[in-house]
Design a protein around this nucleic acid. Structure first.
Length: 306
DNA sequence: AATGAGCGG
């Protein structure tokens, strides 16, 4: 245990406690001084719990409050501390004999601070761990074929997808039948769209043999009939493109690239046809075509970035 | 000169 003169320096642990007792609520005048508030962590010791409160500016220059809570324990020296006592002396104490020199060293009871919570550190850990987990992992998995793409982009969207849906629908019906209590309220006499009351898309009604009539076929599924038109004049509009390309076949979509903010045309567009042959003829027919004092360039579009 | 948005999970 400590020996010698204690008047030279007080124990830092004592200091903490004294400061803790001294802390007063900041006067309004001081609180308005941002720098003071930001730079001065407040330490409060309550029993064996020490709370440090400080204010910082985050990336958005917004003031954030950081509260750290520690448990202060007094214990017999741990192994770690024992090992530390064997460290080689350095600086002004380099040639001192073993043991503390009261001129440079304050010895006190061992004070161990056990970490309880620290929001900052917790956040940092959460930022790093998911990143490691994500490494080498697939981001998306198709619900239809488990492939490495979104369900909506699945190549089997038009074949496997509807089959699975139908299957699920049948299963849903059979379980609903099992749950049905005999003698319960009878179903309404009027023919329902579905026995379960769930919505059934037209293509799946009547045994699912019908194709959607009013609905256009899924144009996104295989978009191999899209062309890119460049060198459009700035005042070309969708309707102009529609007029220009309609003669080659049925168009499913026109996208004229525009600046999102200003609405200004970027001078290129994507035209999707229903049939690839029409798109091919459009390329042949319009590429090199003089339009609004400019020579249009038309080629196959690369698949858009998802 | 230039390869869209948005939908999800």
């Amino acid at each position: 245990m400590p020996t010698g003169d204690y008047d030279s320096k007080p124990s830092w642990a004592d200091q903490v406690e004294e400061e803790g007792e001294d802390v007063e609520p900041l006067s309004p005048a001081v609180e308005k001084d941002t720098d003071y508030v930001l730079d001065t962590p407040r330490e409060v010791v309550n029993g064996n719990i020490k709370t440090i409160t400080e204010y910082k500016l985050d990336e958005d220059d917004k003031k954030i409050k950081i509260v750290r809570t520690f448990k202060i324990e007094t214990r017999k020296a741990s192994k770690v501390v024992a090992r530390r006592k064997n460290w080689k002396k350095f600086g002004n104490s380099e040639y001192d004999p073993p043991g503390p020199n009261v001129a440079t060293t304050t010895v006190s009871d061992d004070v161990l601070m056990t970490f309880i919570t620290n929001k900052e550190d917790l956040n940092n850990q959460e930022e790093e761990d998911p990143m490691n987990k994500l490494k080498g992992q697939k981001i998306v998995s198709c619900r239809i074929c488990k492939g490495d793409h979104w369900t909506t982009r699945c190549p089997y969207k038009d074949t496997l997808g509807p089959m699975q849906k139908e299957l699920a629908e049948q299963l849903g019906l059979s379980t609903a039948d099992k749950e049905k209590v005999p003698g319960a309220e009878p179903e309404p006499a009027q023919a329902p769209v579905s026995k379960t009351g769930k919505y059934v898309p037209p293509s799946l009604r009547d045994g699912g043999s019908r194709r959607g009539e009013s609905m256009q076929p899924n144009r996104r599924a295989d978009d191999n009939a899209t062309i890119r038109v460049t060198n459009l004049s700035e005042d070309t509009r969708e309707t102009d493109l529609q007029e220009l390309f309609r003669p080659f076949g049925s168009i499913s979509r026109i996208y004229l690239a525009k600046d999102k903010a200003t609405g200004q045309s970027k001078g290129f567009a994507f035209i999707s046809f229903h049939r690839r042959e029409d798109a091919a003829r459009a390329i042949a027919g319009v590429s090199g075509f003089g339009y609004d004092h400019l020579i249009l360039n038309v080629e196959w579009a690369k698949p858009s970035t998802n």
